[in-house]
Lab assay of single mutants.
Amino acid sequence: MGFKLLSKLLVYLTASIMAIASPLAFSVDSSGEYPTVSEIPVGEVRLYQIADGVWSHIATQSFDGAVYPSNGLIVRDGDELLLIDTAWGAKNTAALLAEIEKQIGLPVTRAVSTHFHDDRVGGVDVLRAAGVATYASPSTRRLAEVEGNEIPTHSLEGLSSSGDAVRFGPVELFYPGAAHSTDNLIVYVPSASVLYGGCAIYELSRTSAGNVADADLAEWPTSIERIQQHYPEAQFVIPGHGLPGGLDLLKHTTNVVKAHTNRSVVE
């Protein structure tokens, strides 16, 4: 069995187990497998329904001669939608809004960016022009300005110390501490036991640490421990890039980060 097929099978099995364990909360999309990078042309966006009122959005972007996937989250909030992270750029984010209108038909009224990198804030200006209120932590807003990236308009308070959590509509926002970046936030959907790890969490097929220019490698494993301790009931975990899975993604990420750190020390 090929690795790609095995990865998709694991996603399907995880979703099936969740649907059985929580039949009222989960209505997993039966329309197909989780979209992969090879299936999404740059400039297009796919939506994948995880649970009743919960979707991931998947886009792709060219970077350094390669094409990478990027995940975000959409959560229903009454007759409105909360968006977590842009679709990595203005063109993708405009396509995301169009796809949401086509498939869901509810307005996106608020959006949260989970850290300051372009795959999370690139497209904020498109959201703002569409009347979406954009939010991020003060740290993310400051770092985005320093980096020359787009800056969300509103500040999220109460997320300055490791372990801080605040309720934001249908989700809980959690600051686990520094990891992929010093400002990275985690998003949890309690009604569906869905954990969105953003770039602080890796997919299972990833074996290298990737972009760690703004990471705190020493603190990252401790931050992941905080996530595990705060959300032990999480059933569906979405990484910032690639295929979702279960809580095993947290341990896998820790292993990859520690291996990278150990290699760096040896070198």
Rank of each mutant, 00 (worst) to 15 (best):
Y135N: 06
V42K: 07
F116M: 14
D119P: 00
Y12T: 14
A59G: 10
E219G: 09
G245T: 02
Y196P: 00
S7V: 10
I100R: 01
S27D: 09
F3G: 06
F168E: 12
N92Q: 13
A21S: 06
E203P: 05
S160D: 05
G72F: 01
A51T: 05
I238A: 12
S30H: 09
L13S: 10
S31N: 03
V237G: 02
P138C: 12
R206S: 09
H230Q: 07
G2I: 07
V146W: 14
D64L: 14
E33H: 15
L249A: 13
K8I: 09
W220V: 10
S181N: 01
G163Y: 10
V28N: 14
D64I: 07
H180W: 00
V189K: 02
T114K: 01
I58R: 07
V194K: 01
L127M: 06
R263P: 07
A179L: 03
V37H: 03
A59W: 02
V45K: 12
I100M: 10
V257H: 08
L13T: 12
A179R: 00
W88C: 13
S208T: 12
K258V: 09
T254W: 08
D77W: 13
V75G: 02
F116Q: 03
A215R: 10
A209P: 03
G245K: 04
S113P: 04
K4S: 13
W220P: 02
V112T: 11
R226H: 14
A165W: 05
S113G: 11
S193C: 11
A178Q: 12
D77G: 05
P107S: 08
S181H: 01
E157L: 03
L143E: 09
A200F: 01
A144L: 11
F168K: 05
T134M: 13
E145V: 07
A66Y: 11
F116W: 14
G158V: 05
Q61S: 11
M1I: 11
V266P: 12
L156D: 01
T254C: 11
G43E: 09
A234T: 03
P23I: 15
T207F: 04
K102F: 01
N149Y: 14
F63V: 07
T36E: 10
D85R: 00
P244Y: 15
G2F: 14
L24I: 12
A215I: 14
E233H: 11
A66Q: 08
S38W: 06
A66H: 13
V266R: 12
I227L: 05
F26E: 14
E147G: 07
D79N: 13
R120G: 09
G198V: 01
F26N: 05
I17A: 05
A192L: 04
Y175H: 03
R110G: 09
Y68E: 06
L185E: 00
A95I: 09
N92H: 05
D85L: 00
P244D: 15
L127R: 01
H57C: 15
T261D: 11
E150A: 05
I104L: 10
F26Q: 12
N255P: 08
V42I: 06
V11L: 12
N184G: 11
K102H: 02
L82W: 03
A87P: 04
V28D: 03
V121K: 15
D183F: 00
D119V: 01
T153V: 09
V108H: 01
L156A: 06
V212P: 13
K251H: 03
Y135K: 01
L82R: 08
Y196A: 14
G245E: 10
